Computed example of a mutant assay.
Amino acid sequence: MTNHRSRLCHIVIDVDDLDRGVTFWSAALDATEEPLAEQSRHIYRRLRLPDSDIRILLHATNDQKVSKERIHVDLETDDIEAEVQRLEMLGATRWDYQHERDHDFWVLRDPWGNEFCVLHVEFPELLSRRPTWPSDQS
Rank of each mutant, 00 (worst) to 15 (best):
R7A: 08
L49R: 03
F116H: 00
R46L: 12
R55Q: 04
T23S: 13
V12I: 15
R101H: 12
D79C: 15
W106N: 03
E38N: 05
I80S: 06
C9D: 14
D14M: 11
A37G: 08
R130E: 14
K65F: 13
A31R: 02
L119A: 02
R45A: 03
H72I: 01
D110W: 00
I56E: 07
A28K: 01
R130V: 12
P124R: 00
Y44M: 04
P111S: 06
Y97A: 06
R7L: 07
L108G: 07
E69K: 04
M1N: 07
H99I: 01
L29N: 04
F24Q: 00
L18D: 03
D79E: 13
L58N: 03
I11Y: 12
R46I: 09
W112V: 01
P111Q: 00
M1S: 12
A27V: 02
R5M: 14
Y44E: 00
G21V: 06
R20H: 13
T61I: 09
L49M: 06
A28V: 02
E83H: 02
W112S: 00
V121K: 05
L126A: 08
P131N: 05
N62R: 07
E38H: 03
N114C: 08
N114I: 00
Y97H: 11
T132C: 11
N62W: 14
S52Y: 10
D104N: 03
K68S: 06
E33W: 14
